[in-house]
Simulated scan of single mutants.
Amino acid sequence: MSNPKARGRKGGPRNTENNRIYAHPLPLLFVEPPLARLNSVLGLLGLSLTRIENPHCEGIFDPLTRSVWITNMGHSMALWKRGFFGKGNLSRSEPSWLARQLNLRNAAGKHLTSEEVTARRRAERKQFKLDRARAIAAVAEEAEKLFEKEGRVVVPALSGPAIPSSATWRPTQPFTLPPPAESTADDLDGVDEEPEPLEDLEHLQLTLQEAFFLIWSLDCLTVLNPDTMEPMSLQAIWTAFQQAHLPLSIDHKPSLQLDNPFLINYVVYHHYRSLGWVVKGGIKFCVDYLLYKRGPVFSHAEFALVVMPVYEDEEDRDNSVLTLQNSEPFTWTWLSTINRVNSQVQKTLVLVYVTIPSKSRVSTSILDSPACFKHYSIREVVLRRFIPARMRD
């Protein structure tokens, strides 16, 4: 017998399946030993037999796109399902290109990807609007006929048994996936011919901040040099990720800078990841990052972050070779626009001020290791758009 609470709760079975698939918040798994009794005895002594299972994923550094590519599908799904790291280069978020192509080949596929579920909902919503408009037009036409025949004035109703509502409306036909272009009748030579196996053309694309968090904090990612395909050392990765944001120089190798965008964005990324938030890109809402409590498949993002670099010494900004976004004082028009966009989608806007240490106080030699992060600080300013109709109380 099904649970009445789960049946009455919206998305109950779907949330249960998501809880099973995305049960682990990080790629590292803590596996408990089967001998629970022995473990309990060791627990009294302050010891534990819990072992850490590390996926040891591999990726290729791409300096042109400033990202790390995970080409192994097993590694890609491990990083996505355990913390929602990265993004499929041919997908909206989850690397599901191959699954979508297989569903196109087999239109009767029951397991839809997240993008296909969204497409189905949009198609059903469009059909509902068309059915409702037809029903309202029919009621209005009937009222006009009554006025012409009997002279009675009838106000067309916008609700009632004849007008479908979002709570009672059901699609007359189930949503079907569009047929693939290669499966037309003209291109098929025989019915019994086996389809060619699909090659997965998608890879998981990690930002440099995500990749370095997996390398430095979790030690579960190995980055390969794109030229030699050999594993890069932590020092080489640290330097390469910074140089990817520096302007190219023909005469000499660019020197590391305290206001490097990689450092500033990683400070913010690491700060919120360490607090348990799932951090994703927010370019869709004109911000730098979005914060999810558990992940995109569970709920919408609650907070939208805008990274605001602040120089400890104003002279460093004037003499810098880099032009940082949002480092100049913002206008109220810009702030109102960003705040309005995120208020409409029920997200709280947060301005994250990252203080860049002054060159007169610290030397650029500290950039040789990640220990330089202790010289950066973060301040948060939460903004809410004032709406008189909703905030009278």
Rank of each mutant, 00 (worst) to 15 (best):
E115Q: 07
F85R: 03
L177M: 13
A143C: 15
T113Y: 02
R82Y: 04
S159H: 12
R92K: 07
E142H: 14
R100D: 06
A107I: 13
R132V: 02
E142I: 07
P95K: 03
A138H: 04
R82T: 01
V139Y: 01
T172A: 10
A123K: 04
L130I: 12
L130D: 05
T168R: 15
E115C: 05
P171D: 09
R125Y: 05
A140K: 12
T113N: 08
P164I: 11
P156T: 09
P95E: 00
V117C: 12
L112S: 04
K129W: 05
T113H: 01
S96Y: 00
K87Q: 09
E115N: 07
A133I: 11
W169S: 08
F128L: 04
G86I: 01
L90N: 00
A108V: 04
A143F: 05
R122S: 13
L158H: 06
F84W: 09
A167Q: 15
R125S: 14
P164A: 07
G151N: 05
P174S: 10
G83V: 03
E115T: 07
F85M: 06
F128Q: 02
R134H: 10
K129P: 03
P174D: 10
A137D: 15
L188I: 15
N89K: 01
S165L: 12
A99F: 02
W169P: 00
R92D: 14
L146H: 13
Q127P: 06
A167M: 10
S96Q: 11
A99C: 11
A181F: 03
T113A: 13
A162L: 11
K110W: 02
A157T: 07
P164G: 08
R121H: 12
L112Y: 01
P179E: 02
P178A: 15
L130M: 11
E141C: 15
A137F: 05
V155S: 13
Q101K: 10
G160Y: 01
T176A: 15
A108Q: 15
A167W: 06
E141Y: 00
F85K: 04
G160R: 06
Q127C: 12
W169V: 09
T176R: 14
E115W: 00
R105N: 03
P179G: 05
A143M: 01
D186C: 07
G86H: 03
R170P: 05
A108T: 06
Q101S: 04
E150L: 13
N103G: 06
K145F: 01
G160K: 02
V153Y: 10
I136G: 11
D131C: 10
L146A: 14
H111S: 14
L188C: 06
E182I: 00
P174T: 03
T113V: 11
R121S: 12
P174K: 08
A123P: 02
T168C: 06
G83Y: 02
Q127K: 12
P178D: 06
A157D: 09
A135F: 03
I163Y: 00
R92N: 13
E150C: 11
W169Q: 04
V139L: 10
L98V: 05
A137K: 13
N106W: 09
V153L: 14
L90K: 04
N103R: 07
R82C: 15
E182W: 03
S114D: 13
D187P: 00
P164W: 04
F128I: 08
P179M: 05
L102K: 11
L177W: 05
F175K: 09
Q101C: 10
A137E: 14
